[in-house]
Design a protein around this nucleic acid. Structure first.
Lengths: 187, 187
DNA sequence: GTCTATAAGCAGATAGAC
DNA sequence: GTCTATCTGCTTATAGAC
């Protein structure tokens, strides 16, 4: 039983990076092989289901990071404003300060769309539910809290698209910094 | 000189639709052939530069629609609020009520990214410039007007991503309806 | 667990008949 | 201007040695 040259976690990190840069269709097996440093056949050893399974694993992997970095801070016990600020820090890290595309956007396009609609829509709902909950704690009506949480996610996604298109991450930085204030503003 | 079975404008409409659904990499020549009803060789007769030129033509074609539907209403002489409302109607039509993806998002991904960065970043700038101009007419400081115009474009893009991911265009509709108010709110 | 070599099919693109 | 047939290279995926 020879040892693996690279851990499964590391393989997933490299795959994630490659999918985030090239999208599902653009991430060829050759590119994924190069990104991981593994031969094609080794990749198929890890993922019998081929590219589709690699993408599934990446979605699951990112889901865990999202839980840890973005959702977990919202569930702590503390001041709502502080928890939202902590969430924003997690978002900044999760998207590598605006450098990394969101898989919800990438995999919403083309063939990958049908395949991953459910888990990705689930992530959107998990985020808006959690944020709306924190906002509602401050005494705002539940429906207003929900709309604001949706707006926050929309702003997040839009800022990533604009940052990528213009090559300027300033918009991402500013958008993130303004989200807590918009969420908690007086009704 | 036999007549063409389909006008160049119609060909471009079908190509645009296909690129918007599948993205650049996902839109194979076979799919583009099927979408237009033309054989592969006929497509190459229209576009000697191949798929790249088809994509360029689609970007130019969408640029014209964007000018006509979104930017032109901003340049009319009239009440700023009315002009912004007219712009929003154009946006709603341009994106087919949230059904159609934005090329700024689609072509910002993968290999197409490098190729179209300039015209797409230009479109972002044209929009924010025009909107900021109208907002500034109402007496708001220029830098605030600019930030709000950026926020409007960010919200637009984000709403499209979320609508596509969740399959629910309600967010798009609501986001659009709130943009004029956010742009013109008292400082 | 990793590799080289290779299969089978699809990609973009072209030739040449009509 | 359109088509069928075809070329070349890249794609996903597998076989089998080490």
């Amino acid at each position: 039983m020879p040892a693996a040259l690279i851990s499964r976690g590391e393989v997933l990190d490299h795959l994630t990076e490659a999918f985030r840069v090239h999208g599902f269709e653009g991430a060829s097996i050759a590119r994924l092989s190069e990104a991981t440093g593994l031969g094609k056949a080794s990749l198929y050893h890890y993922f019998h289901g081929g590219k589709q399974e690699m993408a599934r694993a990446v979605v699951a992997h990112l889901g865990e990071s999202f839980q840890r970095l973005v959702l977990a801070p919202l569930r702590t016990s503390g001041d709502p404003a502080q928890r939202l600020n902590a969430m924003i820090l997690g978002v900044d890290q999760f998207y590598d300060r605006g450098e990394a595309a969101c898989i919800v956007d990438l995999f919403g396009i083309g063939g990958a769309g049908e395949m991953f609609r459910e888990p990705l829509a689930g992530a959107v709902k998990a985020f808006t539910d959690a944020v709306a909950g924190v906002v509602a704690e401050t005494g705002l009506p539940a429906d207003l809290a929900r709309r604001r949480a949706e707006d926050a996610f929309v702003a997040l996604q839009g800022a990533l698209v604009v940052a990528r298109a213009t090559g300027d991450r300033t918009v991402f930085k500013r958008t993130l910094s303004e989200i807590p204030g918009r969420l908690l503003a007086a009704a």
